[in-house]
Design a protein around this nucleic acid. Sequence first.
DNA 1: CGAGGTATTGATGGGCATCAAGAGATGTGG
DNA 2: CCACATCTCTTGATGCCCATCAATACCTCG
Lengths: 265, 265
Amino acid sequence: MLTPTTTPTVVRPAAHSPVRAPAAGSAGLSASEAPNARHVARCSTCAMRHLCMPQGMSAEELPKLEALICRARAVRRGEPLYRAGTPFENLYAVRSGSLKTTMAHRDGREQVTGLRLAGESLGLDGISSDTHACSAIALEDSSVCIVPYEALKRLCRESGTLQERLHKLMGEQIVREASQMLTLGSLNADERVAAFLLDVSERNAQRGYSSAEFNLRMTREDMGSYLGMTLETVSRTLSKFQKRGLIDARGKFIRIVDLEGLRDL
Amino acid sequence: MLTPTTTPTVVRPAAHSPVRAPAAGSAGLSASEAPNARHVARCSTCAMRHLCMPQGMSAEELPKLEALICRARAVRRGEPLYRAGTPFENLYAVRSGSLKTTMAHRDGREQVTGLRLAGESLGLDGISSDTHACSAIALEDSSVCIVPYEALKRLCRESGTLQERLHKLMGEQIVREASQMLTLGSLNADERVAAFLLDVSERNAQRGYSSAEFNLRMTREDMGSYLGMTLETVSRTLSKFQKRGLIDARGKFIRIVDLEGLRDL
DNA sequence: CGAGGTATTGATGGGCATCAAGAGATGTGG
DNA sequence: CCACATCTCTTGATGCCCATCAATACCTCG
């Protein structure tokens, strides 16, 4: 359902990336992105039937689902997919690229509350009040699948499998956020940065990308904001990890050298 | 649905509370708790039809819903309603009393991740993996309504209203947790404590209790854990607020004197 | 190439953790 | 009902982690 039509077999090399991540895995799905059809593209070779409903959805339900989700939208780096305060209509799944979610305090202070990588879902923050509580900003030129919420809800009433998927998706976000509360509330700077790197690594692995190296498109400031610390402390911590031989960081490209070492912080 | 059969008109005086909170509001619902029927009690005078589905549920759907939810469970202070790692089967709604949710880090460090007051729901942390990610511990002798999740899911497919309610409930938790991430990541000690007091105050108001004064059954340590600081800092901060005339705190009983003052921190 | 955003590294100070001691609250058993 | 043990809270003294300020180097893109 909210698994997008992305290409988990290939680590998309970043424009201007100093180092290229090698391909990893091989799920045998062909890419389907149409980078030139900018704002609305059909997911024609949509791999949905493989990716979205792995656990048995009846044959008659499938076409409805595909009809629902087969729209895509491109978002340029720095641009919002949606803004806090705007009406909630759609859920999204990241097809390619990555986005950050941010939330603002009453006084205007803004904080990064989440990072969404290719294959992950987006927009659940709008369900509670029909208005988005967060903004979603592209960290690089990205593409998302659009899932109209009202239509999805209707489908969920017809398909228990789909309902189950949606519930799990929400449940996962609840647990992920609680876990981030732990990070922010209990860990020191080193532990926070390590936890973050391990989290991204693991999520990459889950989507079929490399768990050992990746391009983190967030700035140090974004990371700091997400981790409740300053960009300087993030930078210092990464340098320290580098000196200790835990990671190999060159700007936004990060290679994890000693996974266990990071876990043992 | 997950609004329990509680009595929002009366502030239940705490045993051993030095000060009694006055009654507030008057929704005209009679209390229905049976404190002696310890472990399983029928919510016989269940006020569900008033509280749970305020936004139009069809007459034929109601009986099913009542049949589903009409079980209660008592939890003694300090006892778990459920523990992290145990199988997920039910959602809960707090009928009376209050509970904290806690989550443990890999190394065993435990942190309070939430506070649930009478009228609030509990257990969503189990949906994602069929296993609870958090533990729920009673802060005082409490009573909860039990809502079997599988049965609820089935009902949600028959009733769009119910489906909507469940989605909103999950969405609200997602936003609430994101908001707590802001608190932990961006605010200093004073601001955190103020934000917490204001949050509890507002939630009390929403449920028909007093927003100006309440018994916070958490210890200073629980509060500190929830707010990412030490119990000493919590205590100092409350004392400081007291000196400034912002609150009147006597142990666990707290009266908010200057709401605006707290907001303006 | 040059400008603006981004990252690194150093020096300094403050906010909050930590350690400590004592007062108060709570629950129990005689 | 009181005495005692235990938990909880308050307040003080000290030190450390990380924010802040600052300067420079580095990317990245027009």
